[in-house]
């Protein structure tokens, strides 16, 4: 097993009281359907707070669909239907009466392709806070600066806050999108293959950023890049499809464990690059 990716760190977090306050996230026996097609089958897992969880697996295995269950982005697809229980902070988020807008405020999302809004860098970051009612210029300035600092972008853009968010490089755009999410102070950040459109240097910057953010935020990242999962994540979930094309959770555990000593033969095959 010498061609397994190297694991950078081991998972040894202790839950603190602070972690507890931040909502815990998990799903139990979840099935997701698009019309008659089942995309995700019987998934049960618990996301550890203030850590990075990677969801890996061959393409088309339902990774992204699964990620979008957490912030109910699947609601946007009229034919999508979900069964099972998804809990956040002790509440089933698919229960009637749950406010999706509030939910998404607390569980932010970063997408595969950087998608800054067609407005200035400042306005991009200030967009969320403004919509949530913050009008005070000084307060906004502060939020924007803090978020851009957290996203490790401040130094690069502080002199061109008025420029279009689309005028900066792809990697910068993606960090801008992360800053945009941070500005609304979420508890969880979902990342859907955030580096797949970026070059290796920009990718490294985002990975560093994730590691820093993990001390304060729960991060769930979907990636097709196993090295990336091994480098940055604490926990890893491996998804695969069966003959019915529905994604199943094959194995879930500490990244170090999954990458060095997987329980399941399929996981081992995938990680050692025998397929996928």
């Amino acid at each position: 097993m010498n061609n397994m990716p190297k694991v950078a760190k081991t998972f040894n977090r202790q839950y603190t009281e602070n972690d507890r306050k931040r909502g815990s996230l998990g799903m139990k026996n979840v099935n997701l359907f698009y019309g008659s097609f089942q995309a995700v089958k019987e998934i049960t897992l618990d996301i550890h707070t203030c850590s990075i969880t990677a969801i890996i697996g061959p393409s088309g295995c339902g990774k992204s669909s699964m990620l979008r269950i957490f912030n109910r982005m699947n609601d946007l697809i009229p034919s999508a239907r979900i069964e099972g229980k998804v809990e956040f902070g002790g509440i089933d988020i698919y229960e009637p009466g749950v406010d999706v807008v509030e939910l998404r405020k607390r569980i932010g999302m970063v997408f595969q392709k950087p998608n800054p809004f067609p407005m200035s860098i400042y306005d991009n970051v200030a967009f969320g806070p403004r919509r949530h009612g913050i009008r005070n210029r000084f307060a906004l300035d502060e939020i924007v600066e803090k978020s851009l600092m957290q996203a490790a972008l401040w130094d690069e853009v502080k002199d061109k806050m008025g420029q279009s968010g689309l005028s900066i490089s792809g990697g910068q755009q993606q960090r801008l999108c992360i800053a945009r999410v941070l500005a609304v102070e979420p508890e969880v950040i979902l990342m859907d293959e955030p580096c797949s459109a970026l070059d290796p240097i920009a990718t490294l910057k985002i990975e560093d950023l994730m590691s820093t953010l993990a001390s304060n935020y729960t991060i769930v990242i979907v990636t097709h890049n196993m090295q990336q999962a091994a480098r940055v994540s604490d926990m890893t979930a491996f998804l695969m499809v069966d003959d019915d094309h529905a994604g199943r959770l094959v194995e879930y555990g500490e990244t170090a464990e999954i990458f060095t000593n997987p329980n399941n033969k399929k996981t081992e095959d995938y990680i050692t690059g025998r397929f996928g």
Binding site: M73, V101, E102, P118, R131, V184
Partner: peptide, 27 residues
């Protein structure tokens, strides 16, 4: 208007109407 703009706004807890008002209509 690209779907990505809408998703970006919805994904940070901006409501549907706010997304339409501040992202979709300006674009």
């Amino acid at each position: 208007v690209p779907r990505e703009y809408r998703e970006g706004a919805l994904a940070i807890g901006v409501s549907k109407w706010q997304t339409i008002r501040h992202i979709v209509l300006p674009s």
